[in-house]
Design a binder for these strands. Structure first.
Lengths: 229, 229
DNA sequence: CGGACTCCTGAACACATGGACAACAAGTGA
DNA sequence: TCACTTGTTGTCCATGTGTTCAGGAGTCCG
């Protein structure tokens, strides 16, 4: 065991053995450094994958000594997990539900735009996620098998409902979700490729708007829907 | 310098200094081992990324001692490059051209189906490519900037031509290419996710057929086209 | 001030890694 | 057979890695 009494405390929720019967109150320093490290970790892991990333590099990006990083996250694995907890939490906050009584065109349009916006705001998170999946999802396997499967099932049901009511074309709902996922994430994950091919140095806001317009346009029409207003 | 007179010879095309004025003929052994190693390398690099992959692991996958692997590819970087040369060569062989006088529906349909078929046949190559791009394409930058940009420009021109002639809906040709790329590659790159969400253990041929049908269906309709025959 | 707790960090360690190399084995053509 | 090329592999090394640890600094509160 280390001499660090609270390492990872906020992460794994272990009880906080700071003195017996005494309460632990996370300080501001802790909060701030944790954040610095997690940001640095996102960059490093997104660029090199789990194995390729090094704690030393993360520490340098965060502007802290390696030992200090390991004070907050007692080892590499936990750091990686904490990062995904962070990311998944962020994502869950954003995605609104869809309901059978919603307008399909509007709902799908919102979904697509939200996803594109995610690609714009959190490209690193998207790449990280992609990397993890490509590498066989050793850490996210569980999440995929439970939460994500349930998520897809729920949306697919609603879409199927719309189809049954004749409110959109007959397309496989699950495949449709995959299509939206892949095409929207692409702007984050393959950023370099897109920029190179389009001969640009950087994305601009209008690029995302254009992409979102294009995707809603084609996908909605592909589903036999009219663009809302 | 090493005592290996021909390491990487077939890769970088350096002149083969086997004896002065003597001709080198690549043997069958060389061919066979190179292939074994490249296959192993694809698996290893696809699973761990460039930095995360180790020569030792590649050697084990190939059933050879590490030293022997390094005899054929004098270092990690060259191995990685050789692999991509291989992959890009394989890809170039498959993609047929499209012409202004082609039928848009048929051409796009073929394109989509070919790409899905690639995801099925060479999932590792696809993942490898995705990884490389996500990591910033340090090795493929050049390829993206030249060959791929040209490739896209050519196709986009033809698609634009179809649009100008009113043979399909007005959609951004470049974005359309990205859409097809992303949605088709997704089946290779995010295989694990798809399998988990759909609660399957393995892909079957019919899954790909179904995916290809879905994609041509939605994308063609999204482009204002009718499915051919 | 003093003590309890939180935060910080340099040094050390065991181990993995990419790569060099020398000696040796196998193949090949005359 | 012989000379030479090609293929094989164990060993070695410098460097980098994750992680431990012991001790010290900073902070807060009575």
């Amino acid at each position: 065991m280390t001499n660090n009494p609270v390492a990872d405390a906020p992460v794994d929720g272990k009880d906080l053995k700071a003195g017996n019967g005494r309460k632990y109150r996370p300080g501001r320093i802790r909060e701030r450094n944790r954040e610095k490290i997690l940001i640095a970790a996102e960059e490093e892991f997104a660029q090199h994958g789990y194995k390729g990333a090094t704690i030393q590099n993360i520490a340098e990006r965060a502007g802290l000594p390696k030992s200090n990083v390991l004070y907050y996250f007692s080892n590499k694995k936990r750091m990686y997990s904490a990062m995904f907890d962070d990311i998944l939490g962020r994502w869950n906050k954003v995605f609104s539900d869809i309901r059978p009584e919603d307008d399909p065109a509007e709902a799908l349009s919102t979904f697509i735009r939200t996803k594109v916006e995610m690609s714009r705001r959190y490209p690193l998170a998207s790449r990280l996620f992609a990397m993890e999946i490509i590498q066989g999802a050793p850490f996210l396997m569980d999440h995929l098998r439970t939460n994500m499967r349930e998520w897809v099932r729920g949306r697919a049901e609603v879409i199927q409902h719309w189809i049954d009511e004749g409110r959109m074309a007959e397309v496989d709902p699950v495949q449709l979700i995959f299509l939206i996922w892949s095409s929207t994430q692409h702007y984050a994950d393959f950023q370099v490729q897109i920029l190179m091919v389009e001969n640009k140095a950087e994305y601009e806001q209008r690029d995302f708007d254009h992409a979102a317009d294009f995707l809603t346009d084609v996908i909605l029409r592909g589903c036999g829907l009219e663009k809302p207003q």
